[in-house]
Computed example of a mutant assay.
Amino acid sequence: MNYIVKRTTSEDVGFKFLEKQLDEELFEIYGEMQNNYSSHNTVRDLKTIIIYDDKKPIGCGCLKFLDYDLAEVKRVYVSLEDRGRGVAKIIVKEIEKLAIESNVKNIILQTGSRQKAAVSLYESMGYKLNENYGPYINDSNNICMKRIVG
Rank of each mutant, 00 (worst) to 15 (best):
D54A: 09
Y133L: 06
I91D: 02
A88Q: 08
K47S: 11
I95L: 14
R44D: 09
D139P: 06
L18G: 14
Q110E: 06
D139T: 03
K6M: 07
S124T: 05
E94S: 15
Y122V: 00
Y77F: 15
L26K: 04
L22C: 03
I143D: 01
E28L: 02
I29G: 00
K47P: 07
T42M: 07
R75G: 09
P135N: 13
S102I: 09
I107K: 11
L109G: 07
G150K: 08
N2Y: 13
G150W: 13
I91Q: 04
K89H: 10
E19D: 10
N41S: 13
E25N: 03
P57G: 06
S39G: 12
I50W: 10
F27K: 10
G150D: 15
T111I: 08
K74G: 15
L121V: 01
N130S: 10
S120M: 05
Y30G: 03
Y3N: 15
G61W: 00
V119L: 03
I95Q: 10
V119T: 04
A88L: 10
E96D: 02
L66E: 14
Q21K: 04
A118M: 02
S10P: 13
E72Y: 15
I49N: 05
K128N: 05
T48K: 07
D82V: 14
N41V: 08
N106D: 10
R114C: 01
F15C: 05
P57N: 04
D69I: 12
I137D: 07
V104R: 11
V119H: 02
Y37W: 07
L98Y: 14
E96G: 06
V104C: 13
S102F: 11
D45H: 14
Y122A: 01
C62E: 11
K47N: 08
I4P: 14
A118H: 01
F27I: 07
E25M: 01
I90C: 04
Q110P: 11
M125Q: 00
L70A: 09
I107D: 07
D53K: 15
P57W: 09
D53V: 11
G150P: 10
E96Y: 06
A71F: 12
S124Q: 02
R44T: 13
K93R: 09
E32H: 05
G134R: 10
I49T: 07
R44Y: 12
E96T: 12
Y77V: 08
R7Y: 10
S113W: 01
R114G: 02
I148D: 11
M33I: 04
K89Y: 05
Y136H: 02
Y30T: 02
A88D: 12
V78I: 04
D54G: 14
Y77T: 08
I58Q: 09
M125V: 00
I100C: 14
I108Q: 06
E131T: 12
S102G: 15
G86F: 03
G61V: 00
V13F: 08
P135A: 13
G59Y: 13
D139M: 01
A71R: 15
V13C: 05
N106R: 08
Q34H: 07
M33Q: 09
Q34I: 00
F65K: 11
